[in-house]
Amino acid sequence: MKFVDFVSREAIRTNIEADNKEQVIRSMSSALLEAGKISEDQHESIVEAILKREELGSTGIGRGVAVPHTKHPSVKELVGTVAVSESGVDFDSLDGEKVHLLFMLVSPPDRPGDHLRALENISRQLRDETFCRFLKQSKEPADVWQLLEEADNNQFV
């Protein structure tokens, strides 16, 4: 699965202003709402489900990256977005590092395979340090999108 298959271009945010986990998650889900990927009446329910998932264990996967996510019956296909935080957000990651790059995923409950393929793609691409660093340095959503497209075209691995 490629980035362009699940990342909503209109919902990418850079220079995100958030000091904590809840703020950044709210900010990203608002971006999905504004992009028309999730519905207004489901917004709060999705935020709460993602926060609840974080309580089970941080989705900070190391290297300054987190993948906050949930399954939610209101989406018909996997939707996702990317956020970049220059100052970093404390995310209780296993390696203790602040998170600068976030991939949020909301998937239909009956499609565990899609969710796993998206995680596989994200982690595989982020193993490349250059790609990871460039993404974290992105100043504009358009820069993020371009990097994702380049990664999809195997320009990093």
């Binding site: 190391g62 296993l94 395979g113 796993l116 596989e120 982690s123 193993r127």
Partner: peptide, 12 residues
């Protein structure tokens, strides 16, 4: 010992 690395396996 790396979550990131294990996720690259896409082990369903």
């Amino acid at each position: 010992k790396s979550i990131l690395h294990m996720l690259t396996l896409g082990a369903d």
